[in-house]
Design a binder for these strands. Structure first.
Lengths: 236, 236
DNA sequence: GCAAAAGTGTTTTCACTACACCCATGA
DNA sequence: TCATGGGTGTAGTGAAAACACTTTTGC
């Protein structure tokens, strides 16, 4: 350890150091449509304008750790789904100085959200067609994330991170419809999803949207791993 | 401009700056198999060991510009295909100090390669099953890039960046076979590829691998754009 | 008993797979 | 003339798309 501290000051001396930040694009689903979580910026420049949540990274944290921390502080949630989206490094992207930002893309369960944390941060959920102007290049980050969401949810089971632990088939169909922005035939959708055999049906029904009630299902990670091990492809 | 210089020193003061680098994973295709370009490292630590080519980024260049520069210097090529792969930011990933690296993934035409540049850099092409131990986390970067190449070449027409401007159908089939590591039925492969109608057949034949000779084709960008505009999906 | 959402099957269509022979040419 | 790689067509199979009615139950 002391060797690496020594090297640090010797080996790469003379190279320029740069500010590095993470910014998080956070999506949620309110059982009707997909939404984006935005924050009123607290620091200069652009204080009070809408922006993504982010933070500078410190030299003792990896980018992933920093993103995790940002997500935890702003939503109160731990173990949320997130992954790297893209770096944004145009020299003049931030009027406050030269900052390279790594954008992270995150999917959270709205029902688990800690409302206190969110309010602390002056946050609000926006429909994708009502997103306000954002600071710096955050609009680009958001567009990029929306693209990625559409592609990713088709081939990876990431959508379950947007649903409550127990969800109904109509609910997941609405999620996909809201992301793809088109209607889906429910017979074909259910048939395909159930054919994967990666869900467990519970005995409970959700009667909040119909008199008949819809069965609640859980995503079954073990079955999904088996599904993958057999060489099958998830695609919805 | 002077405002931003002023802000730079004021607004984000007190935040830690970090060394940022780019590293490039460069693939080529020698008409037989896909290969990886590696370099003998010139600087401490790990001088003389095999590594990816990279460089620290300066505060007046974006990451993309830096990657482009690195690729130009090491191969002599301009306008090569490259895109961001992933950031690598573990705190102790570099024994020479805290460095965040952004890995770029690049595909080049071996026939256009400037051999002087390559020799200057002590470079060598390696088959994917003969890759030597690499410094730091460069092995991880390479594994990640190989994964990405397999996925990407299936659904995007990036493979043409690995072929000469004019190529034969047997050639492109071998390219795909070498990446997928399995044989492909040539009747089905050709049928599908030609059905996209994104290639232009020239009148020339390549007789270097057979007496009959194989027609040379060119990738037709305009036709490809049309293909995409019609909503069709490239998948090989 | 009726409105409203949940749940279910069949037919058609199309894309992928498997598979075998002829062609052109240089040596 | 023959060895070598280039080039082509067809039948069978399976997944996706299109499509309409029955079930449940709170009001």
């Amino acid at each position: 350890m002391s060797v690496s501290l020594l090297d640090m000051t010797k080996v790469y001396i003379g190279q320029e150091k740069i500010l590095v930040a993470v910014d998080c694009i956070v999506f949620g689903f309110d059982s009707k449509e997909i939404k984006l979580l935005l924050f009123k910026r607290k620091r200069e420049p652009h204080t009070g304008e809408w922006s993504l949540i982010g933070s500078f990274i410190k030299s003792d944290k990896s980018l992933e750790e920093s993103a995790e921390e940002v997500l935890h502080e702003s939503t109160g949630l731990k173990d949320v789904f997130f992954e790297e989206l893209k770096t944004f490094s145009a020299v003049d992207r931030d009027s406050g100085g030269r900052v390279i930002s790594v954008a992270y893309f995150s999917l959270i369960r709205l029902d688990e959200l800690n409302l206190d944390s969110v309010e602390n941060y002056n946050a609000r959920w926006f429909s994708l067609d009502e997103i306000p102007d954002l600071i710096l290049d955050h609009d680009q980050m958001v567009q990029c994330a929306i693209e990625k969401l559409k592609i990713k949810i088709r081939r990876k089971p990431v959508g379950f991170n947007l649903l409550p632990e127990k969800f109904t088939l109509p609910q997941i169909q609405i999620l996909y419809e809201s992301i793809y922005q088109r209607e889906i035939d429910s017979r074909n959708f259910r048939k395909k999803l159930l054919s994967f055999d990666i869900l467990t049906r519970t005995e409970e029904k959700d009667k909040s949207t119909s008199k008949k009630g819809a069965y609640l299902y859980k995503f079954n990670k073990d079955k999904f791993d088996e599904f993958v091990a057999k060489g099958y492809n998830f695609e919805l």
